[in-house]
């Protein structure tokens, strides 16, 4: 198979775009597509300071790489969650990438060092160790820490590596369970709705996971290939598998499913009433906006003896 642009041997064929490209033109295509996504969703302007949440997985490292290649001021934030060997290895990949990109800063927050317990220890203390509950705790910790670091260090926006498959899987889950509130909110841009709540964006939402993986491969970006042990059996993995089976038979199905949802909602064809805006106020301990009276959910996590949490 030949590259559509230069006739050199292709490295990838993308059925949904009816496009085969060589290495050089594939990289160029990815960069253009992400630049276009940033522009068309008005994610951020060229002068903004961006904090990229990097886990050590392919998508976040690919995102960081792309933003740097596009000339943005993009630094990395890695949260060491303390999930055994998985976290240690993840950190190694992040450090390796950062070492070869001296133009960017890397901020590392070790959750155990800072708060006294790793995420699994916290889950155990909250009796959240079994099942998938650890992930809701983990998500809460990640959101809080990304927001905290961005505020403290003066970043304008937090960027995460969610790709089209992630978004389509989330959409499928939200539809299957008719989570209207989530359907109203699911978006590549979450604006800051309150002082101290940092804007969040997902610049990879128009790339298939297969494309971000191929980009990592051709650009020599090494990343952790194992999953977090707590991701095993996650519903999102099942949804992705199902969506890929559909995609095999109907090229472009994933893209249409997600992008047409965004379009229809934007044009008012799907009327989803977002829930009434909650009254927010600053947490009395950390100062981050919260709807809970007194302390935010994150700060309550670390109180001794309390067994609730998320």
């Amino acid at each position: 198979m030949r590259c559509k642009k230069c006739d050199q041997p292709a490295v990838i064929r993308m059925h949904q775009h009816r496009l085969a490209l060589c290495k050089e033109h594939f990289v160029e295509w990815v960069l253009n597509r992400v630049a276009d996504t940033i522009r068309s969703f008005r994610m951020f302007s060229p002068k903004k300071k961006i904090l990229v949440a990097v886990s050590g997985g392919k998508d976040s490292l690919v995102l960081w790489d792309i933003l740097l290649k596009l000339g943005y001021k993009a630094d990395g934030l890695h949260l060491n969650l303390g999930i055994g060997e998985y976290s240690e290895r993840s950190l190694d990949y992040v450090l390796k990438f950062a070492d070869s990109h001296p133009e960017a800063d890397l901020i590392i927050v070790d959750i155990k060092e800072r708060y006294g317990m790793s995420v699994p220890e916290l889950a155990e203390a909250k009796k959240h160790g079994r099942g998938r509950k650890i992930c809701s705790l983990c998500g809460l910790v990640k959101r809080h820490e990304m927001n905290r670091v961005a505020n403290e260090r003066g970043y304008d926006v937090v960027a995460t590596g969610h790709n089209l498959d992630d978004e389509a899987a989330t959409l499928l889950g939200n539809l299957l369970n008719w989570k209207i509130e989530y359907l109203a909110h699911q978006s590549p841009v979450l604006p800051s709705t309150y002082p101290g709540l940092v804007r969040k964006v997902r610049p990879l939402v128009r790339l298939y996971e297969r494309e971000t993986a191929a980009y990592a491969l051709v650009e020599g970006i090494e990343y952790i290939r194992e999953e977090c042990p707590h991701a095993l059996g996650a519903k999102s993995l099942l949804y992705k598998e199902i969506l890929n089976r559909l995609e095999d038979e109907m090229p472009g199905a994933k893209q249409r499913f997600y992008m047409d949802f965004l379009k229809a909602r934007r044009e008012g064809l799907i009327k989803l009433q977002p829930p009434p805006a909650q009254q927010l106020h600053p947490c009395e301990v950390c100062g981050q906006p919260t709807s809970a009276p007194g302390k935010c959910a994150f700060c309550r996590l670390w109180e001794p003896g309390s067994s609730s949490g998320s």
Partner: peptide
């Protein structure tokens, strides 16, 4: 064959 699927 490299799995491209990730995430929990």
């Amino acid at each position: 064959l490299i799995s491209v699927i990730s995430g929990g």
